[in-house]
Amino acid sequence: MTTPSTPPAPPAPPVSTSPPVLAADGVTLAYGPVPVVHGVSLAVDGGGTGLIGESGSGKTTLARALLGLLRPRSGRVLYGGADLAGLPRRRRAEFRAAVQPVFQDGSEALDPRMSIGASIAEGLTAHHRLAASARRARVAELMADVGLEPGLATRRPHRLSGGQRQRAVIARALAVRPRVLVLDEPTSALDVTVQARILDLLEGLRAGHGLGYLLITHNLAVVDRLCRTSHVMFAGRVVESGPTGDLLARPAHPYTLALRDAVPRIGGPPPAAGGRTEIAPAGSGCPFRLRCPLADDTCRELAPDPRPLLGRTVACHRAEEVLDGAVRR
């Protein structure tokens, strides 16, 4: 196999000596007997981490494990380098504030029977006592942080727009001064202009609050803006990970390529019609082989192991060819 004639890999993100705030180490997750996430490892740091994949790829399930809502079947969720399952009580409470979710679709993420103010205040009283006046002041401050008028505090979620609800969800998460936000499709339910404003907000908050983001999405443009590192998931496995810019500029896995080219662009060619959507049965060859234009006998017989390539990790037998443009639309 020829060495691909590509420019040298861009410099890797600066490696910090302290362990990342939040990490998954070989996490396998299952609902009942069916595993939906297979041995995924990733870390969330200040640079932002993207988790990309189609519906059903296991992104949200993995996020629930990282939030401590779901116990891994095997592997570990690490908070500051320590296994979440064995955290002492005090550290566990610390974790409960440090890692917060921002779920998609604000209307389900906010209790329809509670006012916006009460929802935002929920985390304030969970960790320490707070006088009513101090609580009100803090809620107003948080609402200002996310660009909500304080007058909206008395409203119920259904009297807010989708963008306002998403801001309220973010404010609720910020109330406990987290270090990591797990953003599960934070803008998918919003229209495009509102999406852009929410992304602006998230970018601004990262600097102001020193936040690390784990961003789960199928929207590559969003990852590109917020995440230095990205992981692409297919059928519960990470098939490619590396610096976001590299991944999007020159995918090494045919699935990454398919995801990128599935985004319609104004003036560009229409996205490919999708073709087959099957996932190959586990235990026999590459799970992507049924949809892969390059699949050959090796792919049918041998599941590819993740291997380093050009500053990234990719699980594909024919990654070099993908990099060289072997897959054409």
Binding site: L69, A97, P101, F103, D105, E108, D111, G123
Partner: peptide
């Protein structure tokens, strides 16, 4: 299973 219940759990509400 609603988002607000998960959010409350993550906030450490008993």
């Amino acid at each position: 299973t609603r988002g607000y219940v998960d959010a409350a759990r993550c906030l450490g509400v008993p």
